[in-house]
Amino acid sequence: MADKLKFALALALLAAGVVGFYLLSEQALVLRVLAVLAGVAAGVAVASFSAPGQRFIGFARESVTETKKVVWPSRKETVQTTGLVFAFVVVMAIFLWFADKTLEWVLYDLVLGWK
C-alpha cells in the first residue's frame, strides 16, 4: 500500500510540474521549463524510494553494465553496412518500379485495352 501511495505522490508531483508550466505562462520560458524539470525530478526522487522504483534502478544499472560488454562495430564496418543497406534499398526501389510498370502495362494495355 505504501508503494502505491509513493507512486501516486510521484505522479502528483509530475503533474504539478506540468501544471506549473501552464500557470507560469506570463513568466520567462526558462522558469517554466525549470518548473517542469523540478516536478519530474521530485517525482523521480519519490518514486525511487518505492519497491518498483528500486527494481527499476537495479535494472538500469544492469543495463549499463551489459551495454559496456557490447563489442561495437568499427567505423569501417558501420560504413560498409550502411552502404549495403543503401544499395539494397536502391535495388528494391528499381525492382518495385519495374513490377509496377509491368502490372500497369498488363492491366491497362493488354486486359483493358487503354492506351
Rank of each mutant, 00 (worst) to 15 (best):
A2Y: 07
T65V: 01
V30M: 06
V70S: 10
I94C: 15
S48V: 08
F95Q: 09
S25N: 04
V40F: 05
F7W: 10
A10G: 07
A60K: 00
W105T: 05
V89E: 01
L107T: 08
P73C: 10
T82C: 06
W105Y: 09
L103D: 00
E62V: 06
A60G: 00
V79I: 05
K4P: 02
R75E: 04
W114P: 13
A10M: 06
G39S: 13
V90P: 11
A87N: 06
R55Q: 09
A47K: 04
I94E: 12
L112Y: 14
G83C: 02
V36K: 04
V64T: 05
I94G: 13
D3F: 00
S50H: 09
L84H: 15
A51C: 08
R32K: 12
A47C: 14
V33F: 11
F56M: 14
G58N: 07
F49D: 12
L96G: 06
P52N: 13
V64C: 04
A28P: 14
L107M: 12
V71R: 15
L23R: 09
V91N: 13
S63W: 03
Q27S: 10
A38C: 10
V85P: 00
L84S: 15
S74Q: 14
V44M: 09
M1N: 05
P73E: 13
Y108D: 06
L11P: 02
L34E: 13
Q80A: 07
L13K: 03
T81F: 00
Q27M: 11
I57K: 15
R32D: 04
W97M: 08
L37A: 07
R32A: 10
A42E: 00
E104A: 07
L23A: 14
Y108E: 07
M92P: 07
A2C: 07
F88E: 03
L5Y: 04
A47D: 10
K6P: 15
G39K: 11
G43V: 08
K101C: 02
V36H: 05
K4C: 09
R61D: 04
V71M: 09
V33H: 13
M92A: 15
L24T: 10
L112F: 12
V46A: 09
A42P: 01
G17C: 01
A8I: 02
L29P: 03
P73Q: 13
G113M: 11
L112D: 15
L13E: 05
V46L: 14
F7D: 08
F95S: 11
A51K: 12
V46K: 06
L5P: 01
L9A: 12
V89P: 00
A8S: 08
A51V: 10
T102D: 01
K68G: 13
A28K: 12
Q80K: 06
L9C: 06
F98T: 04
F59W: 07
E62I: 04
V90F: 13
V71T: 15
E26M: 14
D3M: 01
W72S: 15
A35L: 12
K6H: 11
L34H: 07
G83A: 04
I94M: 12
A15P: 02
V91L: 12
V44Q: 11
E62Y: 07
K76Y: 10
V89M: 02
T67S: 06
G83I: 00
M1F: 05
V106K: 04
Q80L: 05
G20N: 01
A8R: 02
V111L: 15
S25C: 01
Y22I: 11
A42V: 00
V85K: 00
S63Q: 04
Q27E: 13
G113H: 08
